[in-house]
Nucleic acid binder design. Sequence first.
DNA 1: TGCTGACATATTGTCCGACAATATGTCAAT
DNA 2: ATTGACATATTGTCGGACAATATGTCAGCA
Lengths: 243, 243
Amino acid sequence: MAQPVNFGPLAQQPAYRLVSEKIRHAIISGEIEAGELLPTETDLAEQFGVTRSTVREAIRLLEHVGILGRADRKRLVVTRPCTEAVGRSVSSAMLMHQVTFEELWQVAMGLEPLAGKLACLSATDAEKQLLADNLVRTREVMADHDALLEAEIDFHNLVAQATHNSALLLARAPLNELFYPAWGAVIRALSPGERILVAHQHIYDAICAGDQGKAEEWMEKHMRDFRRGIEMGNLGFDQPVQG
Amino acid sequence: MAQPVNFGPLAQQPAYRLVSEKIRHAIISGEIEAGELLPTETDLAEQFGVTRSTVREAIRLLEHVGILGRADRKRLVVTRPCTEAVGRSVSSAMLMHQVTFEELWQVAMGLEPLAGKLACLSATDAEKQLLADNLVRTREVMADHDALLEAEIDFHNLVAQATHNSALLLARAPLNELFYPAWGAVIRALSPGERILVAHQHIYDAICAGDQGKAEEWMEKHMRDFRRGIEMGNLGFDQPVQG
DNA sequence: TGCTGACATATTGTCCGACAATATGTCAAT
DNA sequence: ATTGACATATTGTCGGACAATATGTCAGCA
């Protein structure tokens, strides 16, 4: 019996996608470097042989992920997606998936201790100084819940940056956007400022001493505190986080 | 002395961004559910009081991240961004940041053992069966490098899915896109099929037995094998991965 | 010289209208 | 019930147009 021929759907992409892919490829392959200016929309339209509208749609496709930004709200510029841009898009996805605080916490348990551990190996003096400054500031604003939350988020960002690991920085981006903000409710409910500070202090000490085990251990403790705080405050540990 | 008034730059967003944000918000807030069809472009244009072109640009803005997709290449539909879409955008970011294999490996060391551990708690029988099937297939295609790589990637995806943790699934999405493909070179160079299979087998056993420690430990061993493979093959452990 | 202001130019954001290709729905004919 | 013809709806693409704004140029003036 002759097999029925299966042609499969010939997926011809709309032009704006093709153009978008071409630009994306040119950027990723390094043909256009970060910081460089893109040709004008009219130029691109000519080069690709399509209309400006099409080019614009292609550009929008790349804009939201942060590959393209604008230098001065006029000329388009190739940018390396900042962690915030990545965080935004991943966070959207997580929100739509109704990610619970517990799920986020588990991810944080995987990444934050790792960040602490790695920071021990690669933190520069300047970065240690920034951490020290953060500790001082944290102590100062202990009473102000909003400022405290901000300092807390900053601290973890600084630790992550001290790892000099961009992949880690990007992977934990959604934590900044969703996990720590949710933590704000705990701060308002339980005022755990002192406890936060102690943990941060130990983590800082460990990083300065290059003690990977201690950094990891205290980051884990710190994360477990988060969890306990959410549970004690009855703040919906197993509820979907909200943006 | 009177403080000089600081007006700050009034950031008026272009209309296509406002429209995009409105749609995004409507989606995230659940006003429009996933799977639901969006109004037609002409409708949206009328509702927002802008032109269709503007609406289209707004839509493109959301399309690349996977919030919007098309049902049948015609009607637009609200979709929850699949891990591939998220993986794509995060991967782009990582590529532009010249992420090295070592950096990715470190992230994998944070996430994959965690996935193994969590899978022990939540894997269903169906998921265990899928893992078992994967083991069989892996043994079958051991000689075919491409198929082996595919089976390898599948295995780790299955483990991750067995955690039922969407946040983890999304966070590790770029690994699928960048980390494991890079591993392909090792497979071709060293043919470590047997070694892969042994690790997978132990991980599978641990998950079936609910033995978190063993799952975590073997996943770590497995990851360390990756690292050693890259190093032994002199395949650029500290070089930027390429898409 | 060095600064200011007027002017032309370039570029983006937005609008309008148009058409082709394609999917969907309707209805008659078989 | 299936088929085919036809009208309709929707998206993809095109072309042109204009306002707002940033940039560059250049004369004029202290």
